[in-house]
């Protein structure tokens, strides 16, 4: 049955105009970003070369990546309820569990698509601008962190899409949560009492942001950040204990996907 589920999700996705629109807009934006960095490097005004460029490719500016991907996932999931095709899929013989698996499989598909494009293009241009492809341990760890954060953010988008069941409304809730709600909640709690400070850093988007920071994975980059902060009299950067951070991030992914499944399963279609 898993083969049928994959075939169907692929069929639904590749024929969807909105999917290609989001892909093209994302590809255009990413290409512009890296081509500009590449050209600036050739002109001697920047150093977009490997391994240093991994920090830009795998860490900074990940929000547009999440937003594009989240919007795409919501479009692919929530409209199943607007068109009532979710119920038709179940009538056709899928169990609710199998339908959920189909939607969950969209997460690795989108991660591979978006991250693959970003890494291949960014890495290739940075390699061409410098001395070829170099990818050390910190870059691999940062890639793993970004992948997990990406999956986590998409899990939140999936949860919202399954709960709200309407494309427009789900996108609104997702963007609000991602950009505003969690930050406001965290800030409100900290203002209420400073004792909440150790708690709010465990909020999901906070955790996913922390695991995406390059200095979390590269001790040299961390030392440079500390030196820079000292020199400019800024607060010293903080990083998590790696084990705690990974466990927390994985835990959130499991909890969010589990919650989405339970919620979806208990509701009628």
């Amino acid at each position: 049955m898993i083969r049928a589920i994959v075939k169907n999700e692929l069929l639904k996705t590749v024929h969807r105009l909105a999917f290609w629109v989001v892909c093209i807009v994302f590809a255009f934006g990413t290409t512009m970003e890296y081509v500009e960095a590449y050209l600036r490097t050739l002109a001697g005004r920047s150093s977009f070369t490997l391994p240093g460029a991994w920090q830009q490719i795998l860490s900074s500016d990940a929000e547009p990546l999440y937003i594009f991907a989240g919007v795409m996932l919501i479009l692919l999931v929530a409209n199943e309820f607007t068109w009532r095709t979710a119920r038709q899929n179940v009538i056709d013989g899928l169990s609710k569990e199998q339908f959920f698996v189909g939607k969950m499989l969209l997460i690795p598909f989108i991660v591979l698509l978006f991250l693959g494009f970003r890494i291949t293009l960014g890495g290739a241009l940075a390699a061409a601008a410098g001395d070829g492809w170099v990818m050390g341990g910190p870059a691999w760890r940062a890639l793993a962190g970004l992948t997990l954060a990406f999956i986590g953010n998409l899990a939140i988008a999936l949860f919202i899409a399954l709960a709200v069941r309407s494309g427009g409304a789900a996108m609104g809730v997702w963007l609000l949560y991602f950009a505003l709600i969690e930050n406001l909640l965290a800030e409100g709690l900290v203002r209420l009492s400073a004792s909440f400070e150790p708690v709010v850093k465990f909020f999901p988007v906070h955790v996913f942001n922390a695991i995406t920071r390059y200095i979390q994975h590269d001790p040299e980059a961390f030392q440079r950040a500390v030196a820079s902060a000292t020199e400019h009299h800024r607060d010293l950067p903080q990083i998590w204990d790696a084990g705690t951070l990974w466990l927390t991030a994985i835990g959130w992914v499991v909890v969010i996907l589990g919650g989405a499944f339970v919620w979806f399963r208990q509701r009628d279609l």
């Binding site: 169907n8 069929l11 639904k12 024929h15 969807r16 068109w83 095709t85 119920r87 038709q88 056709d92």
Partner: peptide, 15 residues
């Protein structure tokens, strides 16, 4: 209840 953007044939392929 079918996918409005898919053809009749592709909708049947889903089932």
């Amino acid at each position: 209840n079918f996918y409005p953007y898919l053809t009749g044939r592709n909708n049947l392929r889903i089932a």
